[in-house]
Each structure stands twice: as structure tokens, then as C-alpha cells.
């Protein structure tokens, strides 16, 4: 067996590139009403919610959602899910501007300390757009290199992952922040929180 088959050179680094797509029958990959209808119907029939939310999502094979129960099956015993190989998937990262303007820098959430932390780095709410763009750029690059940490699959809204974001702050410090993202079908990840550090 050639164990290096999965690894490729990318941006001067050796990265894991063995991508797979999670698949549960009956669910269109594309987000929209048709997918929602199918997920509703499968839920009505008692199919497992996490399995249907994962269908169509891309993962590096060495970093899959954690099994919820021992036994046969990808996620749980009698799981209908399978994995399909993917070559060179396109990945996208999206961070809503509100994650900064309406959360991190919001007065409403000031008591969690995130606002003070970012302001201590020299950022203000005016930097929301720039931070959003930088988070998206780094998340896309790291995710496409398989450089993410798998979290639990509860409460079933989708697989959450962590990505380490590296910033050179306006005050000149180099900081590493653990950000939280959710995996969606067809290679999309969206930011849950710019600063989890949990």
C-alpha cells in the first residue's frame, strides 16, 4: 500500500488531500427548498437528523465527524450513510459581518470579554469588514488543506470544526485565535464564532 497517496504538496506544505463527501440517500446536496423538504420527510420517517444534515458535506477522510455509537455504520449502527471519494473539491468560507459588528464588537455582549480582547489588540468595530475578509481567507486556505479540528456533532445543526486564525494585530502582536465554523454541503463552511478559545 502506498501510504503517501493521500498527501500532496500545496503552498510548500505537505497536506492531507483525501477528501470525501458524506452521502445519505434521498437528499439533494444543494441547499434550498428541495433539500429542506427531503430532510423534513426523512425526519418524519425517523431517519437520524445528524445523518441528513451531514449529507453532501465534504471532509478530509482522516477528520470525519466522530461516531455517535459503536458498531457498524458511519455515524451509528444501521446508519444509511456512505462516503464518496472527491478529487480537488472547491471549498468556500463565509463569515457574516454581524459576527464582528453584531457580536464581537457589540455592546450587548461586552460582558463576555471578547470586545475588550479585540480592542486590546487595537481593533475597533470599523475593522469588522477587514477581519471578516481575513478570517474568510485563512479559513478557506486552512480548510482546503484539511487543517481543522473536528468538534462534537451536538446539537445536530451540523458538524462544527475549529480553525486557528493567525493575526498580526494593529498593536503589532502576533496572536492565534481559535475560531468556530460549521460545515455545510458542497464545501461551504460558515463562521459560528470568530473567537471560541474554549
Amino acid at each position: 500500500m502506498r501510504i503517501f497517496d493521500n498527501f500532496v504538496y500545496k503552498d510548500g506544505e505537505i497536506v492531507d488531500n483525501n477528501w470525501v463527501k458524506w452521502f445519505h440517500w434521498g437528499i439533494p446536496d444543494e441547499k434550498g427548498q428541495e433539500r429542506t423538504d427531503a430532510r423534513n420527510n426523512l425526519e418524519l420517517l425517523g431517519h437520524c437528523k445528524p445523518c441528513t444534515v451531514l449529507s453532501g458535506c465534504y471532509f478530509v477522510k482522516s477528520r470525519l465527524p466522530k461516531k455517535q455509537a459503536e458498531g457498524d455504520g458511519l455515524l451509528h449502527p444501521h446508519c444509511d450513510c456512505t462516503l464518496k471519494g472527491l478529487s480537488n473539491p472547491t471549498v468556500k468560507a463565509y463569515c457574516a459581518i454581524e459576527k464582528f459588528s453584531g457580536y464581537i464588537f457589540s455592546e450587548k455582549y461586552a460582558d463576555n470579554g471578547k470586545k475588550a480582547l479585540f480592542e486590546g489588540f487595537g481593533y475597533t468595530i470599523e475593522d469588522s469588514e477587514g477581519l471578516k475578509a481575513e478570517y474568510e481567507r485563512q479559513a478557506k486556505q486552512k480548510h482546503s488543506n484539511g487543517d481543522y479540528i473536528v468538534r462534537g456533532l451536538d446539537p445536530q445543526y451540523g458538524q462544527d470544526i475549529n480553525i486557528v486564525i493567525e493575526l498580526t494585530t494593529p498593536t503589532g502582536r502576533n496572536v492565534q485565535l481559535i475560531s468556530g465554523w460549521k460545515v455545510h454541503p458542497l464545501g461551504l463552511i460558515t463562521c459560528n464564532t470568530p473567537l471560541a478559545n474554549d
Partner: peptide, 18 residues
């Protein structure tokens, strides 16, 4: 509902739970 709970004052999260 999915909620991200955070510590007070530290900038750290406690958990993201339903």
C-alpha cells in the same frame, strides 16, 4: 436552540449547546 455560552470577562466560550 443552538446557543454559544461564554465566560464573563475572559473572551472564552464555555460551550455551544442546544
Amino acid at each position: 436552540w443552538e446557543i454559544i455560552f461564554s465566560e464573563r470577562g475572559t473572551g472564552k466560550d464555555i460551550a455551544q449547546i442546544g
